[in-house]
Every structure is written in C-alpha cells, then in structure tokens.
C-alpha cells in the first residue's frame, strides 16, 4: 500500500494520529517509568521510533496498540541496558503516575500508586493496559508479546493483590511493612492461582 517512504499525504495522516496519541503514550510511559521526566523522555523516544517505522504501520489498524508496543519495547530495552534489576524503589513508587491536586483524591490515588509500584512489572503493565488504557485482553497480549491467557492471569493476580493491599488500608507509608504485606499478598495470590 505505502511504499518504503510513504507519500506525504500518508505521512501527514500518520502524524496527525501520532499527535493525537501523545497524551496516551505519556500516560503509559508514566506508568512504566519512575518519574514524569523519565517518562516523557521515553514517550518522546517511542514517538520518534514510531515515526521512523511509519512505513511498516498499516493505516486503519490499531495505532494506539502499535505505539504502545513500541514504547514498551523501548522501555525494556533501555532498562536492560542501564538499569540494575527491578528492585522496588519506594521513592519511585511515590512518583509513579500523577500527582493530583485534590488532597482527598491524592490519598486514595497515593495508596493505589504505591500498590501498583509494588506489583511485579508484568502484572502492573497488564493491569494498566486493560484496566486503564482501555485495551482488550488480546490487544494487551499483543502489546506485551505474550498469550492472551497470560495477560488474563496477570491482570487477575494484579487485581487480587491490589484489592488486598487496599483493603488492608492505612498501611505503612514508608516502606518496609507495606513491602512485606505486599510480598505475602503476592505470594498468596501466586499460590492460589497455581492451585486453581
């Protein structure tokens, strides 16, 4: 359909769609990266990668899923390069996602943010994609490069773990006990899902 370079009309259409997706890319990046600045760098890199790869995108297919996949790949390849392993950083947990200005909402979101930050990354991203990004399970599976069933089980484990941690409520803000609680919740949900 499009040749290697693409016509300028195709490019313009592509760019318009890409621009419309920027806010979503930023939000997804924020959920993966620790802080807003790093997230924006990630989103910009992903945006440029998408632009460079535009010839391989088929107009009319799901561009949001396609760009999210690019962003995710970018995140993990950078992470492999430059990060040490995925040790939970409580400070990053505090910064993850947004800071809202409504204090009441902030409290509730803060717990959720921290709960999210404590999830294993693959569960967190599955939950974000399906629960917040509006993707169907099969789309999320595509983005994450895994089976639909895997996404389903990740989402369900993540949900159970989050629910448990939020139900406990008022858990210790500064780390240790929350981490311990979350760890045992995760182990428990892991155990339950393998028993099932």
């Amino acid at each position: 359909m499009t040749d290697a370079k693409g016509s300028s009309a195709d490019d313009a259409a592509f760019k318009a769609q890409l621009v419309a997706l920027i806010p979503h890319l930023r939000a997804f990046a924020r959920s993966l990266a620790g802080d807003a600045a790093a997230a924006d760098d990630l989103a910009q890199d992903a945006m440029m990668k998408a632009w460079d790869a535009r010839a391989s995108f088929q107009m009319g297919t799901n561009m949001k899923a396609w760009t999210f996949m690019i962003l995710r790949n970018q995140f993990y390849s950078e992470r492999r390069r430059s990060w040490r392993t995925s040790q939970l950083d409580q400070e990053a947990a505090e910064r993850t996602l947004v800071a809202v200005d409504n204090p009441e909402a902030l409290m509730a979101l803060d717990e959720l943010r921290q709960g999210l930050a404590m999830l294993p990354p693959e569960q967190r991203e599955a939950l974000i994609l399906v629960g917040a990004g509006g993707f169907a399970y099969d789309e999320a599976a595509n983005i994450c490069g895994c089976a639909v069933g895997t996404v389903k089980s990740r989402v369900s484990r993540a949900r159970r773990a989050l629910q448990a941690v939020l139900a406990v409520g008022g858990y210790d803000r500064d780390g240790a006990s929350a981490g311990d609680a979350m760890r045992s919740i995760l182990e428990e949900s892991e155990r339950l899902s393998t028993v099932r």
Binding site: R26, V98, G131, A132
Partner: peptide, 24 residues
C-alpha cells in the same frame, strides 16, 4: 480500583502535552 486506575491514567492523558513533543 478500576475507577481509580482509569482516573490515574486519565489525569496524565489530560495534562497539556509539553511543547517538546510537537517540536520534535
């Protein structure tokens, strides 16, 4: 939890896009 997740995500989506993005 589902509502809050969406809210969290949507808060970022509704932030104004920094100009660097469009500049790039």
């Amino acid at each position: 939890i589902g509502v809050k997740l969406r809210q969290m995500f949507d808060e970022v989506v509704s932030e104004p896009v920094p100009s660097e993005f469009l500049d790039i």
